[in-house]
């Protein structure tokens, strides 16, 4: 009797999960498989048919594309910069906010504002702020005798300007996630540590960090994956320039698909990017778990 009940429960569970799984199959698995399939054909929007099989040609060509190599390099630096900086800033702010007793809602509301703005709007606003001649950023710097800064017209500056705007936009995501983690930590280990005479720093290193590891892992992973996908900011603010300083890989793939109309080649690049992100994610996941 008990077995049939369990079996029935299982069947019911499968039934309930089926629509969700079907939806995932449809919107995630199918497009990925279709991308894989398309990447092996000379499929362009001018001739949108799977009629010329090219095998792995698109993959081979991808490695010969100097622009793709550059885009991967720029993306790597960009991802490392935004994830590390946002994590550092985010964790610091989260720790400070965790100690706040009153008015937390107000801080939350202020912090969440940038996150609510569409990235395209963020890009447009900052382009205006950072106009070297007419923008407010250089005007304010001028009032205190600094500048003018060439925010987007110089390759190095443009890269770091992009990183800074991304931090402005996305750091609250880190804060909110880490803060939720901090708020859910048990009080007992801290009390025990205090009893043993641990100071604030020791508490942080030996209690907070180990307890927070799962949250930190998830936060970093999500942010990393999002950062690899960054496209809107570049599109609005720099178009990959000046030179090739901000040519992120998502924007490069977009150009292959919608400017070059070469969907086959773009699909191959997208598959490569997916593989890179998967490997990176797996490595980070294992590495963080082994740190126990």
């Amino acid at each position: 009797m008990a077995a049939t009940l369990a079996a029935r429960d299982r069947r019911f569970g499968q039934l309930m999960a089926a629509p969700g799984l079907a939806a995932l199959l449809l919107v995630i698995v199918f497009p990925i498989l279709f991308t894989l399939y398309t990447s092996a054909f000379d499929f362009t929007l001018i001739n949108p048919r799977h009629d010329t099989f090219v095998g792995l040609d698109h993959y081979a060509r991808a490695f010969g594309l100097a622009e793709f190599g550059n885009a991967l390099r720029v993306t790597l630096w960009f991802v490392v910069a935004v994830v590390v900086l946002e994590f550092a800033v985010g964790f610091l702010v989260a720790l400070m906010l965790n100690a706040v007793e009153r008015g937390k809602a107000v801080y939350y509301a202020i912090l969440l504002c940038p996150l609510l703005i569409n990235p395209v709007v963020v890009g447009l606003i900052w382009r205006m702020f950072l106009h070297p001649e007419l923008g407010i950023a250089n005007y304010v710097l001028g009032l205190v005798g600094l500048g003018p800064v060439n925010w987007l017209g110089d390759p190095t500056n443009a890269f770091w300007t992009l990183v800074a705007v991304d931090i402005w936009h996305q750091v609250s995501f880190m804060i909110v996630l880490l803060l939720a983690g901090l708020a859910s930590l048990p009080k007992e280990p801290y009390e025990a540590a205090r009893m043993e005479g641990a100071g604030t720093l020791a508490c942080f290193w030996h209690v907070t960090l180990p307890l927070m590891r799962p949250v930190i892992l998830v936060t970093l992973l999500i942010r990393l994956i999002f950062a690899v996908r960054t496209y809107d900011l570049v599109y609005i603010m720099t178009r990959g320039g000046p030179g090739q300083a901000t040519d992120l890989v998502s924007y490069f793939i977009y150009r292959q698909a919608f400017v070059g109309l070469n969907i086959g080649q773009a699909s191959a690049l997208a598959v490569l990017l997916l593989l890179i992100v998967l490997v990176l994610t797996a490595w980070l996941y294992r590495h963080m778990r082994s740190l126990v």
């Binding site: 106009h131 070297p132 987007l152 017209g153 720099t238």
Partner: peptide, 14 residues
Amino acid sequence: PLGAASFGFDEAFN
């Protein structure tokens, strides 16, 4: 002007 390497036509026009 500084930054013209990043100007679109609206910024340059302004």
